[in-house]
């Protein structure tokens, strides 16, 4: 029988703790595939977040530090300045990067730190039980917006890629999703490009990944994937937002 798929070499043999239908598992695997394919296992240093992605160090067989909530880009800055030859990336959720860690992410981007941020946007605080995130859509129901997000009271969904694109330090920003096979292949390409951008010393790179959270969206996995296409991408259009040649 022909083997068509195998666990990436740099993925530890552990069971994911993610909920059924969650996008983190796919994103974790993509990252390790890219690191394998680019031969970066011995160079990569990952900064893990607080949030659903916090346990990536149980899955990634690379050097990993778990940072305080929101501080990933600052920690990654410290690491990269000491070890400019290594591939340094942070893995951050929407609460982590777009709320509590906005300042750290924004200023790392503005300084053009040659690091990569993998920004997982699922529109809610997953780990804490589905509260409103800065990226929660208008009228979306969460545990802290029981009547739907009202922009007058709770503000508007934050478009990180577009905000960061205004900063001169950013070199590569792309928004992708992982809700269907074709999208997964595109997401992988984006991650590869972002890492290459870092290796080439071009500046700050970020891949925003729209990721399904069926548990907190109160949807089935298939419905969640469809919702990304039909609703979420209207607010967060896919594609390259900025690419400096």
């Amino acid at each position: 029988m022909k083997k068509v798929y195998t666990r990436p070499k740099t993925m530890k043999e552990a069971h994911f703790h993610y909920c059924p239908g969650c996008g983190h598992g796919i994103i974790n695997r993509l990252l390790m595939e890219v690191i394998d394919e680019m031969g970066l296992r011995e160079s990569a240093i990952c900064v893990a977040p607080a949030g659903c992605g916090m346990l990536v160090y149980n899955y990634f067989d690379i050097d990993t530090l778990e940072s305080a909530h929101g501080r990933g880009a600052a920690v990654a800055t410290g690491i990269k300045r000491v070890r400019p030859g290594n591939l340094v990336f942070s893995y951050q959720g929407d609460g982590d990067l777009a709320a509590i860690g906005t300042a750290e992410g924004f200023h790392a981007a503005n300084r053009g730190e040659p690091i990569t941020v993998i920004f997982v946007n699922n529109g809610v605080y997953g780990m804490t039980g589905g509260q409103m995130a800065p990226t929660t859509l208008t009228e979306q129901v969460t545990t802290t917006t029981p009547n739907g997000r009202n922009p007058i009271l709770a503000g508007h969904p934050v478009r990180i890629c577009e905000v960061f694109s205004m900063l001169d330090g950013t070199a590569y920003l792309e928004r992708v999703t992982v809700n269907k096979p074709a999208a997964v292949i595109k997401a992988k390409k984006a991650i590869k490009k972002a890492f290459q951008c870092q290796l080439d010393g071009k500046g700050f790179s970020l891949v925003e990944i729209l990721s399904p959270c069926p548990t907190n969206w109160k949807m089935g996995p298939v419905e969640a994937c469809r919702w990304i296409d039909e609703v979420m991408t209207k607010q967060f259009p896919l594609g390259v937002v900025k690419e400096v040649s």
Partner: peptide
């Protein structure tokens, strides 16, 4: 946090 990053990098 930059200190933390630099420290963990040695």
């Amino acid at each position: 946090n930059m200190v933390l990053g630099a420290s963990v990098a040695g």
